[in-house]
């Protein structure tokens, strides 16, 4: 915010730069760590609610509707259904993918909650609700406990899912 002009030539101060940096230790908690460790092995791990039986992936440790701990680990399939999507055509800070690209809600087989994933290996105008997709993982050496381990989803070649089968998971 210091400028190069002379003191005399400077106008009144109108802005103040106040950079702020804080350092934290972060933990996603026990349940999400199960999910993240699964990713490091190339697997999707969810948890089941003991009360309603729904499977959450990832689980944050509780069933969001019952408020009880989800304790049973469940391994999910590598394939799922696109429930809805949008095509991202806007650049923004932190973005690492070339636009336009498809961002979809993917409902993994066996799960009761979809999550957002990148869809590739298909032209953006061919994506559709109900499309069956499979996860493509990074090379085994590059697997980490992070969603970055999932490179993207791509069409699995199976016939589209029936709207009735996923309409509650939009």
């Amino acid at each position: 915010m210091a400028d190069d002009s002379t003191i005399e030539g400077r106008g009144p101060v109108t802005t103040l730069a106040t950079p702020i940096r804080l350092d934290f230790d972060f933990t996603p908690g026990i349940a999400q760590s199960v999910f993240l460790r699964g990713l490091a092995r190339g697997r999707f791990m969810g948890q089941r609610c003991p009360k309603c039986g729904k499977v959450y992936v990832p689980s944050r440790g509780s069933c969001p509707t019952d408020g009880v701990p989800t304790t049973e680990d469940v391994e999910l399939a590598n394939v799922g259904t696109v429930t809805t999507y949008c095509v991202v055509n806007v650049p923004f800070a932190g973005q690492s993918i070339e636009i336009p690209y498809i961002c979809a809600q993917v409902l993994l087989d066996g799960a009761n909650l979809s999550f957002m994933g990148l869809i590739q290996e298909i032209p953006t105008d061919e994506i559709r609700m109900g499309m069956r997709v499979e996860a493509v993982w990074v090379d085994e050496a590059d697997l980490t406990p992070s969603l970055a381990s999932v490179k993207y989803f791509r069409p699995s070649g199976e016939p589209d899912a029936d709207y009735e089968s996923y309409k509650e998971y939009l």
Binding site: G29, I30, A31, G67
Partner: peptide, 25 residues
């Protein structure tokens, strides 16, 4: 508390505050 996220930290407390007087959410 090295282990838990906010949800995991709170759940037992919420369960206890209801449980001691026998009520639910």
């Amino acid at each position: 508390d090295d282990e838990h996220n906010e949800v995991e930290m709170l759940m037992p407390v919420v369960a206890e505050v209801f449980g001691t007087i026998g009520i639910t959410k």
